[in-house]
Computed example of a mutant assay.
Amino acid sequence: MELEVRHLRVLCAIADAGSLHKAARELGMAQPSLSTQLRRIEQTLGGRLFTRGRTGSRPTPLGHIVVSRARPLVAELAAIVAETRVAAARAAGGPRLRVGATASRALPGWLRRLRSRVPSAEPTLQMDVSANSLLCMVAEGRLDLAFVHEVEGSPLRIPAGLCVRVLVEREPQFVTLAADHPAAAQAEVRLADLAHDRWMIDSTVDGEWDGLCRVLREAGIEPDLLHGDYLTAYSLAAIGEVVTVSQPTARPRPDLAIRPLKGDPIGVRLLLAARTAAELDNGSSELEEAYWEVARQAPAYQEWLERRATGRPAQALRVVGA
C-alpha cells in the first residue's frame, strides 16, 4: 500500500475529531471501513498512530509527527483545488470579486455566501499574514475587499482614502495549550500560571510579536518566545512543548484546550476595507453572518460572550474611516 493524499486527510480528520466514530461521520464513511483503513496506514508506516480508548482516539508520538507533516500537505492540495476553480471561472469570463484576508475561520462561510449571492461570480481569495500588505493591495486596486485584524497597541497603516468598517471592535485573543496542562482545568487562565511556559508566536503576522511581548512584560513575565507558524505552534502545544495565542473562534480539538485569558489582556480589532463604501456593501453582511456562525461553533468563545452578557459586539458593521 502506498500513502495517498486521501490517507493523510483521514489521519487529520481522526486527530481533529478525537474519535474514529466522529471522524467517520465527517468523512462520510462507515466506522469499520475507517478502522480498516487506519490499520493499513499504520502497517504501511510501521507503527501505531493513535491510541484508542473509551475517551476517544489520541495521536501517539509517532502520530503527532505524521499528522503535523500531513496537515500542510492536505491544506496545500485544498488550495490547489480552490485556485484551479478560480482560474477556470476566470477563463470563462465571469465577473470576480477579489477578496483578501488574514487567517480566520469565517473565510469559508464568507466565500460560500458570496458565491450563493451571485453564482456566476466566483470570488478569488488572496491570503497574507500581513494586514498592511492586504490594505495596500486594496488601495492599489489589486483587491476589492480585505478582511484583516489589527493587534491592539500596533495600529495598521491604513492608506489614505481607504474606507474601513469594523466587524468587531475588540475580539479577545485566547490561549491554546495542551489538554492536560494544569492551567487547562481553569475556565480562565491567568498569565501568571503560564510564567514558566514557552510561547510560540508567528512574528511575520503584523503586530503579534510586539503585542504579546508587551502584554507579558506588563505582567512581569520575561517571555521565552519561539518563532513559528501557528500550524506548528498548535502541533507543539498539543504535546506540551509550548503555549500559543489563538483566535477565540478556533476549532476545538481533543488534544488542545482553548481558554480565555483572565482580564482579556490581548485583543484585536476586526476590519473590512475597500476603496468605497459601496464596495464595502458588496460583502459586509455576508462576512458578519459568517463570523457569528463560527463564533457560535466555538464553545469557549460562546461561554465568554455569555459570561459577559455582551451578545454580538456589533449588530452591523460600523464605518470608521473613508
Rank of each mutant, 00 (worst) to 15 (best):
G263R: 10
R117D: 06
E241Y: 02
P254G: 02
Q247V: 04
P172S: 10
P299C: 11
G321H: 05
I239G: 05
E83L: 13
A101L: 01
D193A: 14
G18V: 11
L156H: 05
P299S: 09
L20G: 08
K262P: 00
S68V: 07
D197Y: 01
E241S: 06
R308Y: 02
T249N: 05
V320Q: 08
P182I: 01
H64I: 04
P61G: 00
T102S: 07
E279T: 14
D210W: 06
L177H: 04
Y301E: 07
L194F: 11
R39A: 08
M29Q: 12
D210N: 07
A290E: 01
E218P: 09
D180Y: 13
T232I: 12
G228H: 09
I221L: 11
G220T: 06
K22R: 14
P182Y: 06
M200Q: 15
Y291G: 05
A24I: 14
L261I: 15
S284N: 03
L34H: 09
L270F: 01
E188P: 03
A106Y: 01
P32M: 09
G220H: 05
M137D: 06
D255V: 13
R170I: 05
G94F: 02
T232G: 03
I266E: 02
P72R: 10
A183C: 08
L45G: 06
L236F: 05
W199T: 10
A298N: 05
H181A: 04
P313E: 08
R275T: 12
A179R: 15
G18R: 13
L27Y: 04
E208I: 06
R48N: 05
R142Y: 04
C213M: 12
E140A: 15
G47Q: 15
A103Q: 08
I221Y: 12
L225T: 05
E4L: 14
L111K: 00
G63W: 04
S130D: 02
W110S: 01
T204Q: 13
G267I: 04
A121Q: 11
A92L: 14
V86L: 14
G207M: 02
S33N: 15
I14T: 03
P265R: 07
F50R: 08
D128Q: 13
L167F: 01
A195P: 03
V189P: 03
G100Y: 11
S57F: 04
E150M: 10
R165Y: 00
P59G: 10
I80C: 07
G161W: 08
H227S: 07
R190S: 10
D264R: 11
M29N: 08
Q302G: 10
A79Q: 11
L167A: 04
P155H: 11
N282K: 12
R217N: 02
M29T: 05
L27P: 00
